[in-house]
């Protein structure tokens, strides 16, 4: 039975897929480390976009990549000072 099970598992999730998935995760981190400017640039862009909708505390603004077992998540901690009353225009033609 074990033999059959092994065969089955192999078909279901091949070692190639495991390699590819591990590689994908490791590269998310590698690439950020190679260019520390990347998160900084993202942060600046985020501030620009979010500021259209609300006033935020730029000094407390944090952007990070969190790695858990099988995924990487982008997390942002954005202190909001106040909401803007209305959005100028929502239609973007």
């Amino acid at each position: 039975m074990d033999f059959l099970k092994q065969l089955w598992n192999r078909d279901a999730y091949s070692s190639k897929d495991i390699a590819k998935e591990r590689l994908r995760l490791v590269l998310v981190h590698d690439r950020v480390n190679v260019s520390p400017n990347l998160l900084e640039a993202l942060k600046e862009d985020l501030i620009e976009v979010i500021s259209k909708y609300m006033e935020i505390e730029e000094t407390g603004f944090e952007v990070n990549l969190d790695k858990s077992d099988n995924q990487v998540a982008l997390s942002a901690n954005i202190p909001v000072k106040r909401m803007k009353r209305a959005i100028a225009s929502t239609d973007k033609g």
Partner: peptide, 16 residues
């Protein structure tokens, strides 16, 4: 090995 799913193929590597 690529055919058996035990080695990354050309497309896999180019995609990454």
């Amino acid at each position: 090995m690529v055919r058996q799913g035990d080695m990354m193929g050309i497309d896999d590597i180019i995609e990454i």
